[in-house]
Design a protein around this nucleic acid. Sequence first.
DNA 1: GCCGTCGTACTTTTT
DNA 2: GTACGACGGC
Length: 693
Amino acid sequence: MRCVAGCHAIAPQCAPTSSSNELIQSTIGSQKAIIMSSIERISSLNPRQQKAANLGDQHALVLAGAGAGKTKTIVARAAYLIEQGVPAHQILILTFTKRAASEIVARVKSQLGERAAQLQASTFHAWCICLIRRAPNAFQAKDFTVIDRDDQVMLFKAIRGKSKDDSSNLPTAAQLCDIYSYARNTGKSLSQTLKLHFPDFVDAKDQMVPIMKAYEAKKQENRYLDYDDILDRVARVINDSPKACEWVALQYDHILVDEMQDTNPLQWSLLSPLKEHCWLFCVGDDAQSIYGFRGADFKNVHSFQERVPGAVVLKLNKNYRSTQEILDVPNWLLANSPLEYGKQLVAARGSGVRPQLHNFSNEWDEGGWIAKDIQRRRSDGDNWKDHMILTRSSQSARAIESCLLAADIPYRVIGGAKLLESAHIRDLLSLLRIIGNPRDEIAIMRYLTLFPGVGTVTANRAIARLKQADTLKSAITMLRGDRLVPLAATDALVKVYQQRGNVAEAITTAARMLDKVLEQKYRNQEWPKRQSDFKIVAKLAEKHSSILGFIEEYLLDPIHISMVKRSESDDVATIITIHSAKGAECKTCYVINVSPGAFPSNRAMGDPEQVEEERRVLYVALTRAMDHLIVTRQKYATWALPDKAKAEAAETYFFNKLPKGLFEEHTHNQAPKRCAKAQSFKTRQFSGGINFD
DNA sequence: GCCGTCGTACTTTTT
DNA sequence: GTACGACGGC
């Protein structure tokens, strides 16, 4: 047996499946309950799943259609390995979301109990952070702050602003961020990235290079790691240094990868060097590849055997989730693609209820009807949690949310606003971040400009001064002497600094010290509600001893606002973005706004690759339903588009040549009854729509 | 010269 | 519900 330094001692922030408090634990528990409810129904493996789970020591790729039991096979594989004597901590499970990770671990533990206690499952990012935390010097990432996309955009904005030259079409800060990230995730050069994926900006390349270089310099200077750095640091080191690679590889015998079709070249570069030392067991479905925008490369699936010599490929075809009537819809969708997916899902469960297609005028009618339908199904004996509403964007979840709210239906939203991303929490955390990393310019800027009399100019001066200081203490003394910023600003820094060993206390103190300025800032924006969020953040931080560790955990595993609010009740309906819903399933699924201009999204039109990805997004949505699939769409969804886009939307619409009989179709011209909340939103003027016939 | 406020426009998908 | 630009006040 192998014994490696570090493998036995997993620091709290490194245990990817441990949740940091009961409040949140109960919400995550309820999520699992939904996802797991049906799986327990079929507990035994079919022969193919069994064969996959019980493979000996070899590399394997399991290709499985939607609902064919991918998760179940991974769970069974992990359980089998542990039963064969592989120590649980020598198995690494990599998934795409934290939810998938905790679900898999929970299921293995429920099968094996104590023997699986050390089993680890995490996202690629959480895993890399864990490695970096264990050997910060090896990865050249000591005392860093993890920054999210908003912070990245802030940095790009600050740099771009200086080099503004109105003569050319320089990408916006957010676009620069996307281009930079795409290039890193795919390993492509900037020129190649622009040519292939951002052709509008090919000419701006020479202007972009210095901006991106300045961005990298800023990251270095402020000790920031962005999301891509987290993977990149580890990938570089294990590819360049055989010794480091061995150190990592020795910790694991088997690596199990979920959703392989969504891995990108950067992620592959993490797995590739390890395949010499560990056995890879990867599971995927090319028809469900929906992360192309992040550089996902399904060559990782298609060329698996070339990349991993000696690997065996197994296929799982039978669908155990849905009835055949439901599967006929996604089957038809893929059959209409110019690409050959070669997928025909066959329902092991046989025949059931025909899916429904409902036409509405607008999103309020759509949402109002869905609320009524859920209430009807509940009074017929279903639970709230038997209902899942799938949306393309988190934006479109808002109308449906207000309809459920008005109808008194308990719900939670997954994939929308995240707690740590809301403005008032970022304000609060900016203070904590300065304590954790005194060079954190973004945090200093955000923090200082909270105070009356301090704007960007003054804040920048203060930052320049602070950079000269060696320690936070001397920096604060310097700030006080300068009188650049109000005393309240430095007082809060001092007070919170004294509490830095106890993150929850520090947050409570910070909230108290900033109460005045924040109340002023948010006086017209639901301040009491925002204020109560601070208590939640303090509670989340209870088990953390490091400020940066705390921030990092919740950036990589975000808590959604509605999860916190709804924690007291497990029986809730779910509103979820399709991207977040991969792997999930539910008895009754509403796939909303499957309208022209939305599927494919008008932003994807013109690019065949993106249109196909949109098709797969819809495919994922349609394959979540177990018993009832209800698709809704809006007649006037494209009302705001220019005529040309409107025509294009009508032409490329996925449901154009829908065969009769696939759906039971209903058209609603009037809202059944507008909900009170919905009425309070401004009514829209509609002009021109698409004829669905 | 710098800051605060008010009005307007925009809002894919995730780690 | 947030971000940016324009403008007026200090």
